[in-house]
Design a protein around this nucleic acid. Structure first.
Lengths: 107, 107
DNA sequence: TCAATTAGTCAGAAAAACATGACTATTAAA
DNA sequence: TTTAATAGTCATGTTTTTCTGACTAATTGA
């Protein structure tokens, strides 16, 4: 392992792009816009995914402070992840990406 | 090799994000906003890059129709790549990514 | 008590991405 | 004529990412 942080000098957009485009992150982000998300639910909702990747994605999104982990200490004690304020601030750009993707047929 | 095209169904933003975040693509895109770009110039301009990766990035950006390859058949015959209309349509979102990256300290 | 669910971790394998060095073909300058 | 530049390709190897299956530990329902 060399450096965890690549040189994104001279290109401020690069880091943010990487942040958002990690494996399953766009899907998770999209689902999180609709409400709190949970590990096992994502695993079922996102077909083709696997626990390891979901786990990594959630951890990284949390580290990046786009998601907040909440331990619900009620009856059947479980864990939720919610979009943070920082996370919410990305909704418009995410919407725009979806819009462009449609409009321009960038697929 | 299985499938070149991953399933980005159910997440329109995903494809666009991948498109923009491939190796060296943000840098290339940024430089291309300033004018025509060329293979060997990129190679020197982007430190840490290598011919193979630049080659792949240019080819893919061309396939995605964000760049247009132009063969300049003049005196010292060479090749240029220009942002296409589709490519130009992404400038605003790219700017916004740069802006957010600064504003929100998303690094 | 036994099985299931939740939310993961860990080691190892497989696949994909990336880098390196050698090579090509054309043109131009020294 | 030899050297350098342009714009790459190709084979190979290394590194990184992703997937798989086994496992854990707490709680719950039958």
């Amino acid at each position: 392992m060399e450096f965890k942080t690549a040189n994104t000098d001279g290109c401020p957009a690069e880091h943010l792009l990487k942040t958002l485009s990690g494996k399953w992150k766009p899907q998770i982000f999209r689902i999180a816009q609709e409400g709190p998300i949970r590990f096992n639910l994502l695993l079922r909702q996102i077909e083709g995914s696997n626990k390891q990747s979901i786990s990594v994605a959630l951890r990284e999104l949390e580290e990046q402070e786009l998601l907040e982990k909440v331990i619900i200490k009620q009856k059947p004690l479980h864990i939720e992840y919610n979009l943070s304020e920082k996370g919410k601030s990305l909704i418009p750009i995410f919407r725009q990406l979806e819009f462009l993707s449609h409009e321009q047929g960038l697929n």
